[in-house]
Design a protein around this nucleic acid. Structure first.
Lengths: 210, 210
DNA sequence: CGTTTATGGATACTGCTACTATCCATCACA
DNA sequence: TGTGATGGATAGTAGCAGTATCCATAAACG
């Protein structure tokens, strides 16, 4: 497959493919001569994955690269691979909440995690985000939403177990890791769209004059 | 309150506040003289909301503006306000999937919505995103994830009902609308962090050698 | 009362991101 | 043999989210 065919197959302009090659998102094609390379199905798959992450899930290109690097490093254990992808996904954010708000939120979140029996490293980047978000919600006077943390956690745990169980049927380790990552990222897009639709529907029933 | 105090109270640099004023995210302060304005609690609240949306939920400034405009237009019915905020939140995306993939995905999504008895306008932007995402998942060979659509929808419907019920206790219409919007957007950040943590925990239990 | 500091408003500039555009020396195919 | 595509390099672009600078005025302080 030459670059033009790859472009047509994936619906991505040639210059963009070249850009991804430059940035190392897409592995180089096999050179048959100094200016002739051929690409295969793996490239096409990879390119589609990149587009889904960039366009649908709005993941920045630099982060997509980190995620792909994590996916390709099959020397490290699966759990560590997932951890790396998670880290690529969660920007380290500078704390915005006040100290008191954050301390209170941290305590609440720690409680929640203990109640659910989750084992979470205290350095997990998602933990910081969660704490900041809870603090922000309180500061914005939305304590009633915070009171749903347990309900959210329960629901989320439920379908995460499902997902992981389903994904575990993948034959190879590579495919498994890829499925986990795709599931994490596109799953979020899925959930967020569903949430919007559910809201739309419920809000229509409740507040729309007939 | 002068701009410097506002800046200190919210932890946002003065030039940034000026930028938000310019962009119309933050209403002008009350001018007591040509170069002296005073800001009140409402400005502080608004500023905190902006920061939470921009920093925590990563919503682009232009979209935050649309959302705030929707919030402030209390002449329109609540359901319509929510619809506008939703529209501001979901970028109209150009279709990326192939036609067949999208048609199949659309059918599946339509079925799902019918099964759940949701009333969703066919122009809802989240609908397009959902369809594109399902199509992308199939194209990426992740059909097993798509099979959880119903489970996701059920869970999501569950806590959306909870949220709306809780939020309905807000005394005024303005506060109600604001709560819905904050709940929609920061709730997503919340769910996404929880999801990451749940994954981390489950993946540790399942794949980490002891 | 004079001086330092802060303010409102306007304009310009910056750094970053995700591409696009252009060029050129091959190379493949008709 | 010539027409179009390709690989590789370099440069350019549009949009975003602020920053920086300037100025005339106002407030606060000693």
């Amino acid at each position: 497959m030459r670059i033009g065919e790859l472009s047509r197959a994936a619906g991505v302009p040639v210059p963009t493919i070249k850009y991804y090659l430059r940035e190392g998102l897409l592995p180089q094609g096999e050179l048959s001569s100094p200016n002739q390379a051929s690409y295969d199905e793996a490239h096409l798959r990879r390119l589609r994955l990149i587009r889904a992450l960039v366009e649908l899930a709005q993941v920045p290109v630099a982060q997509v690269k980190e995620i792909l690097v994590a996916l390709d490093s099959d020397a490290v254990p699966l759990h560590e691979q997932i951890g790396r992808a998670h880290r690529a996904l969660t920007p380290t954010r500078k704390p915005a909440a006040t100290d008191e708000a954050r301390t209170a939120a941290a305590a609440q979140v720690t409680d929640l995690i203990a109640r659910r029996g989750w084992s979470v490293e205290s350095t997990a980047p998602a933990l910081a985000t969660l704490i900041e978000t809870v603090a922000a919600l309180r500061t914005l006077g939305q304590d009633n939403l915070v009171s749903f943390l347990d309900a959210y956690a329960e629901a989320v745990e439920g379908f995460t177990e499902l997902e992981i169980a389903a994904v575990s049927t993948n034959p190879t380790r590579d495919q498994l890791a890829e499925s986990v990552v795709i599931g994490t990222i596109l799953g979020e897009t899925l959930i967020s769209s569903l949430r919007l639709l559910a809201q739309e529907s419920i809000s229509a029933k409740r507040w729309q004059q007939p």
